[in-house]
Design a protein around this nucleic acid. Structure first.
Length: 470
RNA sequence: GGCGGCAUAGCCAAGUGGCUAAGGCGUCGGAUUGCAAAUCCGAGAUUCCCCGGUUCGAGUCCGGGUGCCGCCUCCA
């Protein structure tokens, strides 16, 4: 069965076919590091990580690049040359580099907490200025860009497909009147490739002038090309990246290389909180720390952020967070049950084997359908029922366990499980069982509390007491 | 003003025209338990935001509303 992905460019699901057999070149739009990333940002990054993991599960070698934007973009065309990083720098009396480094570091730490896999590269925009300049010069030479003083603009009229990704027509953009009139531009929809401003804090001396800085979109085009080549398979980002960012990337890259840029464009919908957009005034722009303060770990948060389909708005509420944690706990419990069954189930070793096949087929079919995580997760549940009924044979349980671990790895929620292998805990559980046999309830409850303090949950089942790590 | 997306039980969420609308979480009954937890049994949408339409048949398609979200300015 093949992987079908919804391509923002064609607005349809298409069979996934990489340019090179077995290899996927993927570029993910990463963060602009001028503040702490919130859980909404992470929904998008987690989507990219899930996609990468699914491709690897499917046998592809994934060459993944996620940028870190450490040079600010302009707030608008008419401002004083200030950008978000510079604004934050001025506010805090630090240099733009200090701001970028500080928040990039935080981003890396957060992403590590989520267990996000390291991509091939995490390029920073400021390290690819020469590559950007090369593209800008090339675009001028090809007649797709023009220089006005120290500024360089992309000539939108020179690229007829402009607007194909976003559905925007150039006429509408002009009529929208939200584009500032800029006398220097030939056309109001033209966008900056390079800007010059002596007041800008981060600036570079180039052929365009002594103190310029890159335009809004050129960094991703330049870094993707440098690290992955002229053409790539997948380009991802949040839904807000569609226009102008990705539209402009397509224009720049395709004019420069003369070839199609990314085959598949995939965009994650925004995370909503309490049914609406996050806002500082409502106090619901949560960071990973805010969620941890409520008693949830990053793994549980990760689960909460990926369990919905990436192209459907996901609503985050504390109630949904609680529900997600409970669901994940059931998956962990299933892991423990399977482990026990694999170690020593009676009866036919193959009992339940067909269920494992079905679960795996269902899981793969769902993931292959444009990463339908909700459905893939649902496909795992019949295993839990079977395990709870103690109906798995040892061999089937081993297969189920191996599959479940792979499936959970795709979601980035795999976990070390070592139930039933700790002598000290076994002894405590045995002591509790004895106390209960003696009807010494005070002692049995004390031991139960002691185990709970160790993070161990005891379960009294028909077959005796068992335990697992929470 | 222009472009696009979403709207399914208390909550999250699948459903890509046709059996009784997945699944999970939570809740409420019951069983079990020393009390719990876990587990088991049972209960939940005469119905898929609203109004029309197409069709033998629509949550699924079309038109019109309403609400929310994104973009048209950097933004996941």
């Amino acid at each position: 069965m093949s992987f079908n992905v919804y391509n923002s460019l064609s607005k349809t699901k298409e069979p996934f076919r990489p340019l090179e057999d077995g290899v996927v070149r993927m570029y993910n739009c990463g963060p602009t590091v001028y503040n702490r990333q919130h859980i909404g940002n992470f929904r998008s990054f987690l989507f990219a990580d899930t996609l990468r993991r699914w491709l690897e599960y499917s046998g592809y070698e994934v060459r993944q690049v996620m940028n870190i934007t450490d040079v600010g973009h302009l707030l608008d065309d008419q401002d004083e040359g200030e950008d978000k990083i510079e604004a934050q720098a001025k506010r805090t009396q630090k240099s733009p580099k200090e701001i970028a480094d500080e928040y990039a570091q935080m981003f890396l730490e957060d992403i590590a907490q989520f267990g996000v896999l390291e991509p091939l590269a995490r390029p920073r925009a400021t390290e690819y200025i020469p590559e950007m300049v090369e593209m800008v010069e090339g675009l001028i030479a090809k007649g797709n860009a023009y220089q006005v003083g120290g500024d360089v603009y992309f000539d939108v009229a020179s690229f007829p497909p402009y607007g194909r990704l976003s559905g925007n027509r150039v006429e509408d953009l002009v009529a929208g009147a939200r584009i500032d009139v800029n006398e220097d531009k030939r056309h109001p929809a033209d966008f900056a490739l390079w800007k010059s401003d002596p007041r800008h804090l981060m600036k570079w001396e180039t052929v365009f002038g002594p103190d310029g800085f890159p335009g809004w979109h050129i960094e991703c085009s330049a870094m993707a090309r440098k690290l992955l080549g002229d053409r790539i398979d997948v380009h991802t980002g949040g839904e807000d990246n569609v226009f102008p960012h990705h539209e402009c990337e397509i224009a720049q890259t395709e004019c420069f290389t003369g070839a199609p840029f990314a085959t598949y464009w995939m965009h994650a919908k925004f995370l909503q909180v309490d049914g609406g957009k996050m806002s500082k005034s409502l106090g619901n722009v949560y960071t990973i720390d805010d969620v941890k303060e409520k008693g949830y770990d990053p793994r549980q948060l990760r689960y909460a952020l990926i369990r919905g389909h990436y192209r459907t708005p996901l609503n985050f509420t504390w109630e949904s967070m609680k529900g997600a944690a409970a669901e994940l706990d059931n998956l962990d419990d299933l892991l423990a049950l399977l482990q026990r069954a694999a170690e020593g189930a009676d009866g036919d070793p193959g009992a339940g084997a067909e269920l494992v096949q079905e679960a795996q087929a269902g899981f793969e079919a769902a993931m292959n359908d444009d990463l339908n995580v909700s459905q893939a997760l649902a496909a795992l549940l019949p295993l839990r029922r079977q395990a709870l009924e103690n109906a798995f044979g040892s061999e089937a349980a081993k297969d189920a366990l191996a599959f479940l671990e792979r499936a959970m790895a795709v979601f980035g929620i795999a976990r070390e499980q070592d139930a039933g292998s700790d002598a000290e805990i076994d002894a405590l559980v045995a002591a509790r069982t004895q106390a209960r046999a003696d009807k010494d309830w005070a002692e049995s409850d004390r031991i139960r509390d002691e185990l709970a303090a160790l993070g161990i949950e005891v379960k009294d089942t028909a077959g005796g007491a068992t335990w697992r790590r929470k």
